[in-house]
Structure formats: structure tokens, C-alpha cells
Design a protein around this nucleic acid. Structure first.
Lengths: 211, 211
DNA sequence: ACGGCGACTGAGCACGCGCTTAGGTCCGGC
DNA sequence: GCCGGACCTAAGCGCGTGCTCAGTCGCCGT
């Protein structure tokens, strides 16, 4: 929880994602951050390598010293982003407490991450189709783990009599879908902070599944 | 209801969207349908005009007899698609019955449309950023109407004592988000028919808001 | 002092893109 | 019979793209 709480604590404003804090060298990290911004704004295919390099304050050619292709840049973003989001979900779902409490924590922090880091999250969730086949394969494994975590919590809640859920697979998919889609519509400076959306969504999901 | 029921009646398989049935001449309609497929598969920016023309069985130049630019093709798809989806929601929310029944009908048919015509819906919901500024402005008006319909039903349900919803705006956004995101993950040939997903989601939403 | 090496740039290549243009074909009206 | 217009194609223009490469800069160990 500690990590997950720190994750989105400053909550408002467009601060950069610390997911990429330990990427070295410095230029490689700046390129990644530039690419995240650009991909989130325009999409992968509408973004030029010149734009990315420009945001990082470098010439177009410098990009290819640190990454072999534009697609590899996307893959690194996707990989790190997925690792982070899976970690957050795992930690939240593994806290002590009843299944209801764990589902609450999972939805709350997952949503908060998608809102606070919606720039990264948008690339992570909506640019999958631009990945190469092999890279996509690696990512899909992590995505399946995400679904598995949700299904597990729901099953345990049903077993404990806390939840009344007929279609566990379908409901898990719906809950995830609800959380993920936050990255699509969230705007910094909107009426709600990531924390508030997390709280709202946790409540909605709780009512959706509780017995 | 009649129209909305007919809308997704054959329910399974990848049948073409009749939204574009009255587009003339024939070649213009074939181009639209080809563009819908291509945009849904690869996204607007990754789709070439040669690809679209090829799917319609024509030379690249033929596209420009019927549409001035590639973007206009996207706009026509987006416009017709939005009109259709707004009409569906409006009709469902305007049936007689309690707010709970109308919310049920709205979610059910809206979700069914997004699943059954997920190809069109994916373009409609996820390619907005590729629209030109003026065209985007036109579309946004329709999207606001969609939100308004949802907020109205929720408000009426609260007033009638059927729903217990604190944050009407936030909840309306969440419900819409849930429905829309179906277009992202739905695949034809998956375990659930559009009808089944509609029923599942209507139930989930009902529990989310009911007093 | 200097060699070697990693980081970076300026210039530019080959390609595929959106779109245009000149011209061909077909068909209904007179 | 033949004109006019709607529809379509072959060819290709100009440009911006992803990416490359020869060469420069500056820092480090010796």
C-alpha cells in the first residue's frame, strides 16, 4: 500500500511519470518521456521520430543510438507501463483484509494510476495495435495476469459470501474495462482529482458486485 | 424499441453495418465500408488511401471523386455512427416505464450496438483525435447530447427514489465509459453474444445505481 | 599529452504517402 | 448518330517519413 499511496500522491497537475525514473542514460529517459507525451497526444502512427527527438532536445539521429526503431520506443513504454500497473494491482489485491476490502483497494489504486498517469496509461492501453508481433506477445502475458488478479478477488469474494456475481469472467472484464477507460477521458485540470475518481469508482464497483 | 431490437438481431458473426445502407452512389458506400474496416483494424493514420480503395475494388484515384480527403471519409463515418448511436440511446431512454426500466433499456441497447457493430463503434469512439478541428466540433455536440441523456435518466431515478446516486455527473460518465469500452475489447466469435453482454451490463449498472 | 570511445549531429537516402491530372469508357437524351 | 456528363483509371508529382552514415565533440584513463 505504501508504494501505491506514494504512487499518485501529488494527485493534481501534469507531473512526469516516475515509472521511467531509473532509465539510463539520461538521454534515453528524455526520449522515452518525449515519446510518451507525443504518442499520447497524437498516437503512435501520427508521431514522427523528429518530434520525439525534438521534445528530448536532440537531433533525429540521436534517437537511434538508444533505440533501434520507433516501435522499440513504444515497446519500452508499454513494457514498463504494464509492469508498473500489474505491480500496483498485485500489491493492492494482496493486502490483508476481506475480499471486499481488497477489491476496493485494487480498483481505487488502479483507477488512480490511470488518472494520475493518464498520459502513460493512454499509450499503454490504446497503442497495443502498433506493437510488433513478438513484442505484442510479451505484453499480452502481462495483460492476462491483470485479468487473473481481478478474477481471483471476485471468486474469493463469492466464496466468502461477500459478493453475488454470476458471471465472474464477464464481470472481471467489465470492472477492468471501467478502470482502463479512465485513461481515455481523463483530463488534468478537470473537476475531479485522481483520488476522487478512485474513491468514486471503488464505490460503484463495490455496489456492482456485493451480495 | 422496435428499431433498437432490429438493430442487432442477427447478433452473431461479422455482418456489415446497415447504418451506411442509404449512402449513394454504390461506390461511395463501398468506400465508406472499406474505410470503416481499415480504420478499425489499423487506425486512421496507419491506413492508406490505397488500402481503402483496394477494399472497395477501385483505383486509388476513385476515392477522390466521392470524398475530398481521407479525413472527410473518417468524418462521414463518425457523423453517421454518432447519429445512429445517439438515436439508439434516445429511443431507449424515451420508452415508457420507470427510470430503472429506461436505464436498463438504454444500457442494454447501447452496449449491444457497441458489440454488434464494434468495427464501426471502434472508429466512432477511438479515432476522434484524427478529425479536423471543425469536424471535431460538430461531433462533440452529439457526444454531449449522449451524456445529457444519461444524466437525465439518472436524475429522474434519483428523484423517483429508485436510484441512490451521489455524483450524477461522475456516475453518468462511468456508465457511458463502461458501455463505450465494449467496442475496444469485443471480438466476434468470443464467448458472449452482443445480446448477452447487453444483458450482463444492464444488470451491473442497475446494481451500481439502485437504492 | 594523447589515444580511444561513447554520445551526438548534419546531411541525406529510399520509399510510400496523400492527392492530382489527363484521358478513357459508358450511357441516357435528342 | 452523337454529344455531355458521370464515373473511373494509369501515371505520377511533391513531400515527409523512418532510418543511416560519415564525421565531430568532449571526456576518461594512462
Amino acid at each position: 500500500m505504501e508504494g501505491a499511496t506514494a504512487e499518485a500522491d501529488s494527485a493534481e497537475g501534469s507531473f512526469t511519470d516516475e515509472s521511467f525514473a531509473d532509465v539510463t542514460p539520461d538521454a534515453a529517459r528524455r526520449l522515452l518521456l518525449g515519446a510518451v507525451e507525443a504518442f499520447a497526444e497524437r498516437g503512435f502512427h501520427a508521431t514522427t521520430t523528429r518530434d520525439i527527438a525534438g521534445r528530448a532536445g536532440m537531433s533525429p539521429a540521436a534517437l537511434y543510438i538508444h533505440y533501434r526503431t520507433k516501435e522499440e520506443l513504444l515497446f519500452q513504454i508499454s513494457r514498463v507501463g504494464h509492469e508498473r500497473s500489474v505491480r500496483i494491482l498485485t500489491e493492492a489485491a494482496a493486502t490483508g483484509g476481506t475480499p471486499a476490502e481488497r477489491l476496493d483497494a485494487a480498483v481505487r489504486t488502479f483507477v488512480r494510476w490511470h488518472a494520475a498517469y493518464h498520459t502513460t496509461a493512454r499509450v499503454v492501453q490504446y497503442e497495443l495495435a502498433a506493437l510488433g508481433e513478438e513484442h505484442y506477445g510479451e505484453i499480452v502475458v502481462m495483460r492476462r495476469r491483470t485479468e487473473e488478479i481481478l478474477r481471483t478477488v471476485l471468486s474469493e469474494g463469492v466464496a466468502a459470501g461477500e459478493f453475488a456475481v454470476e458471471d465472474i469472467n464477464g464481470t472481471a472484464l467489465a470492472v477492468l474495462s471501467l478502470c482502463i477507460d479512465v485513461a481515455r477521458w481523463y483530463r488534468t485540470g478537470g473537476p475531479r482529482t485522481p483520488d476522487e475518481i478512485g474513491a468514486l469508482y471503488a464505490g460503484l464497483v463495490r455496489r456492482m458486485v456485493s451480495a
